[in-house]
């Protein structure tokens, strides 16, 4: 293989693995910026992966190539619905955010495998999808010499979309009225309340956005990577997204960068065998890397400092 081909494979594989993380990690960012810790991203991604797969299998024959794209929206929709549980528990019912998130993580695989068995003749996994999200070659950009081949040929359109959504998220959080208010309830809900901001509504928005984006992340996993749904379709990606959110210090653009970084790490475990130097290193180190890095970074550089001040705190409106 030529160097450029190797690079192209590396970059596109990395991006394919980054895409779900980018969406889910951005989701987590919205939730936590609003003050609701969301360790339930894993569960939300499972629901997204499942609903995306089911939609794909059901409507694929009729809708054709556009199916997985609609499937992503369906995945996001169901992720959002599922996250309502978390919002209800943490915002209205004063549940501990971690307990509630853990419930999502326990409930999602149970529910989705249960339904898979009902929908697909008692089997624990769905059939293979036939309308998958294939790689994409950018029309004009791919003609650029070298760069075009490495970055814009047979690559993950979704990763680029994710990066774009990263910028939009930054714009929303930092520049708009909604963003300012969302952040205010994550920093000091009581102060926001005295200024007439509806704390509950804001926190709901944060959680539901995380449900939508996390669901899309799951939909990407099942429709572009595993190409079916089973209990192992999502195996830690939600937690890795959480790690990316922390590594990116809750800042959308840095979160995207962290997600891509973790995506690279994951992809090296898969394509490392083709790369001379890396092939000697055992996969396990690349698989572990995101988690290890997060601990080190969190311990040495971040501490609690960058997290929204009221992250994880239940706000009770006084009467």
């Amino acid at each position: 293989m030529s160097v450029i081909t190797i690079l192209m494979t590396m970059v596109s594989t990395a991006l394919i693995y980054s895409a779900p993380l980018i969406f889910a990690a951005l989701g987590g960012t919205f939730s936590e910026r609003g003050g609701i810790v969301n360790v339930g991203l894993e569960g939300i991604m499972i629901v997204g992966a499942f609903s995306g797969a089911v939609f794909n299998l059901t409507y694929g024959p009729a809708l054709g190539a556009v199916t997985p794209w609609i499937g992503l929206l369906v995945a996001g929709g169901f992720g959002l619905l599922f996250s309502v549980l978390h919002a209800l528990a943490t915002v209205n019912f004063r549940a501990d955010h971690i307990v509630s998130g853990t419930v999502l993580n326990m409930l999602a695989p149970a529910l989705c495998v249960f339904l898979t068995k009902i929908f697909y003749d008692g089997k624990g996994q769905t059939p293979v999808l036939d309308q998958s999200l294939s790689t994409f070659t950018f029309p004009i950009l791919s003609k650029i010499p070298v760069v075009g081949e490495i970055f814009f040929t047979r690559t993950s359109l979704l990763a680029y979309l994710g990066i774009l959504i990263g910028f939009i998220s930054w714009w929303i959080l930092i520049k708009t009225k909604f963003g300012l208010r969302l952040r205010s309830v994550g920093e000091n809900p009581q102060a926001a309340d005295t200024l007439g901001i509806n704390v509950y509504l804001m926190r709901y928005s944060g959680v539901l956005i995380s449900g939508f984006l996390g669901g899309i992340g799951g939909g990407i996993m099942s429709q572009s990577i595993s190409l079916n749904f089973s209990v192992s379709t999502i195996a830690g990606q939600g937690f890795m997204a959480l790690a990316a959110m922390i590594f990116g210090k809750w800042h959308p653009l840095k979160v995207v960068a962290a997600a891509i970084f973790f995506g690279i790490s994951q992809s090296l475990a898969i394509i490392g065998a083709y790369i001379p130097v890396i092939s000697k290193i055992d996969d396990v180190w690349f698989q572990m890397a995101p988690y290890l890095i997060t601990i080190v970074v969190l311990a040495l550089f971040i501490g609690k400092f960058y997290a929204p001040a009221a992250d994880g705190e239940t706000y009770v409106k006084s009467k």
């Binding site: 300012l180 208010r181 205010s184 920093e187 102060a191 926001a192 200024l195 007439g196 901001i197 929204p308």
Partner: peptide, 16 residues
């Protein structure tokens, strides 16, 4: 009732 991580300006306009 201020938000430490916000600027003075952001604190003033928040909500309006």
């Amino acid at each position: 009732m201020l938000i430490d991580d916000f600027t003075v300006l952001e604190n003033i306009i928040l909500g309006d």
